[in-house]
Design a protein around this nucleic acid. Structure first.
Length: 599
RNA sequence: GGGGGUGUGGCGAAGUUGGUUAUCGCACCGGCCUGUCAAGCCGGGGAUCGCGGGUUCAAGUCCCGUCACUCCCGCCA
């Protein structure tokens, strides 16, 4: 048949996921891919697949010679059109594990629309090939049920987000992806300008400045499914380009933003996954999160809290702890229930986790009775053992793990041990989504190497009212109107109420050693806009990729992105980034500098 | 920038203290088979074991280097 008319005569009347016994005896046409084929002597079965499902096609021995010959030619992933009659499968031949398992299609005509070479890997539930091969042949990998399901979920999540926000009166507004480079934060991806040679655009790390300006413009509820670009090393939960559900609102306080986000999450989970989330979400201050869970993105599917050991450490005989405390450090302890039988090897493994996060070691002791401790550093605390056990709420058979260090290091390192134990002790239930807000973040962090204050989040977040007076005197204690949404140890969203007062903005700039002149140069357009009646505003940006990864219980955001980059930011399929022609460089007034050659 | 892991036909894996012709499943080719659904059975082709060097009578296996991928620390306002 001539190709150009196949799609007129053999156009599908149904999809491969919808035929049921209700349609029996009907003549139908299906288009799809040969998923499996089983030649059984005089009878051939073909599993025809499209994105809606799989339907079994039967070619029987009474078929025309032409049909039999065509059926014989079919191989994996041939794209074909099948015309046939729907019929109920004989008793005992029904496949209950299949949506269309009650029926089959007796083929009358099969047209091969295109053929397929020997596959690099099979199309199945989940591709079994190594990831770089999956990425090279991403179009094949995307045919797998797993990828199809996840891409569909992604579609449903963005739809549910749009649905909720639009119903709440938000406008979806696009912002540019060729913008000016701004300081701080991650490295920018740069795009050279041809017309204005020597100048560069940057790809946005987020639409931050534009959405604030949209607030000045009076679009008081804005959102965008926004692509963001950050030139940093990729990870399982990070890609050089990723997507945020970016939103911003005017005339709001923190709680208004949190409430909208909670409602949106509730709608997404319900519509995309049928999960009922109870709102409002728990709230935890940054300080409490760090002190109790050793993380600003704690996994609350299990408790296992960090406790403070300073009061005992200062009185005990263990000099290491005392020295740390004298230097304004912290001693934190984790009570691990029922793990006193842990081997030296197991404890060493946990110590390695702590060391990865900067701890010098992981001290330990075992609880052997109401007042008995043993092993590790137990001998330094025998006299106060009973009090320690009572104070920590420990019991016989528990294991105590300690980290002593600078407060942040002690908490972070022991928090990492806590996370590891959550996995090791099987405390992590799938399909259990424990949301919480982390609030009251510090606005500034001290940079010890360079001896100055850095913004902990970004420069435009509002300091909380009670710190306004002493902003310059003691930047370290200033809390901002910042909030992160966390679920199961994953940072899902980050946002803040913004500064809309140019004078206050100027004070924040000066704390981080940013001269007004410099600020004018880099953010002048934002500051300028704030001269013209800016409304109080704030917003948030949930990470779409992470949200979907969480929803489908995957380990990597690459599993929910159609065409992701690998860990060095390359795409094996199209082999980007790639060298370019000399002429292209010339047009852009660019010249490559010789880098060290690797032999 | 640093640390860990992996690399064996098209794909996924096995390969012992170094020892004959590198094994298995899937895929591929040929044949048989009228109710399979990861179909089955019989037969066949296909690998310089990531790459380079070294040790050795002998290297997939040991050593050094290197590349690729991956996980983690740093980095990611």
């Amino acid at each position: 048949m001539i190709d150009s008319i196949i799609m007129e005569t053999m156009k599908r009347t149904h999809t491969c996921g919808e035929l049921t016994a209700a349609l029996k005896d009907r003549e139908i046409t299906l288009n799809g891919w040969v998923h499996r084929h089983r030649a059984q002597g005089g009878i051939t079965f073909i599993n025809l697949r499209d994105r809606y499902g799989i339907t079994q096609i039967v070619v029987e021995s009474d078929s025309s010679k032409e049909l039999l010959e065509t059926a014989d030619k079919l191989k994996f992933e041939y794209c074909i059109a099948v015309k046939g009659i729907v019929r109920e499968r004989p008793e005992g031949m029904k496949n209950t594990g299949m949506k269309t398992g009650d029926i089959e299609v007796k083929a009358l005509e099969i047209q091969i629309l295109s053929t397929c070479e020997i596959l690099p890997f099979m199309v199945e539930e989940e591709s079994q090939a190594k990831e770089d091969l999956r990425l090279k042949y991403r179009y094949l990998d995307l045919r797998s049920f797993g990828m199809q399901k996840r891409i569909k979920l992604r579609h449903e999540v963005t739809f549910a987000a749009r649905e909720y926000l639009i119903n709440k009166g938000f406008y979806e507004i696009e912002t540019p992806t060729l913008i000016r480079s701004t300081p701080e934060g991650a490295r920018d991806f740069l795009v050279p300008s041809r017309v204005l040679s020597g100048r560069f655009y940057a790809l946005p790390q987020s639409p931050q400045l534009y959405k604030q300006i949209l607030m000045v413009s009076g679009f008081d509820k804005y959102f965008q499914i926004a692509r963001c670009y950050r030139d940093e090393d990729a990870r399982g939960d990070r890609q050089p380009e990723f997507t945020q559900i970016d939103l911003e609102m005017s005339f709001v306080s923190r709680d208004d933003v949190l409430a909208v986000t909670e409602g949106m999450m509730q709608n997404i989970f319900k519509k995309a996954s049928g999960i009922d989330l109870s709102i409002p979400f728990k709230r935890l201050s940054y300080d409490d999160a760090m002190n109790t869970y050793g993380s600003d993105k704690p996994d609350l599917r299990f408790e296992l809290p960090l406790q403070d050991f300073a009061s005992f450490a200062s009185k005990g005989d263990f000099q290491v702890f005392k020295t740390v405390l004298e230097n304004k450090g912290a001693v934190k302890v984790l009570v691990v229930p029922g793990c006193s039988e842990y081997s030296r090897k197991q404890i060493t493994d946990l110590e390695d986790v702590a060391k990865t996060y900067g701890a010098k070691g992981l001290a330990w002791m075992k609880i052997t009775g109401d007042s008995g401790v043993e092993g590790g550093i137990a001998r330094f605390f025998e006299s106060s053992a009973k009090d320690i056990i009572t104070a920590l709420g420990a019991k016989q058979g528990d294991l105590l793990l300690f980290v002593a260090d600078k407060p942040k290091t002690a908490c972070t390192a022991l928090g990492a041990v806590r996370s590891r134990l959550g996995t090791d002790l099987g405390l992590l239930k799938a399909d259990d989504f424990q949301f919480c807000w982390i609030i009251d973040f510090p606005l500034f962090e001290y940079n010890e190497e360079e001896s100055h204050w850095d913004p902990a989040h970004h420069l435009f977040s509002m300091p909380q009212e009670q710190f306004l007076e002493t902003l310059e005197k003691d930047p370290g204690v200033v809390k901002g109107d910042l909030y992160d949404l966390v679920c199961n140890g994953v940072e899902l969203a980050s946002g803040s109420i913004r500064i809309h007062d140019p004078k206050l903005q100027e004070r924040v700039f000066s704390v981080v050693g940013f001269s007004m002149e410099e600020a004018q140069k880099k953010f002048g357009f934002l500051l300028e806009s704030f001269k013209y009646g800016p409304p109080p505003h704030g917003g948030i940006a949930p990470g779409l990729d992470r949200l979907i990864t969480l929803l489908c219980n995957q380990g990597s955001i690459r599993e929910v992105i159609a065409f992701p980059k690998n860990t060095v930011g390359a795409s094996p399929m199209d082999d980007s980034p790639s060298p370019v022609d000399t002429q292209q460089l010339k047009d852009l007034s660019l010249q490559l500098i010789e880098t060290e050659k690797k032999e």
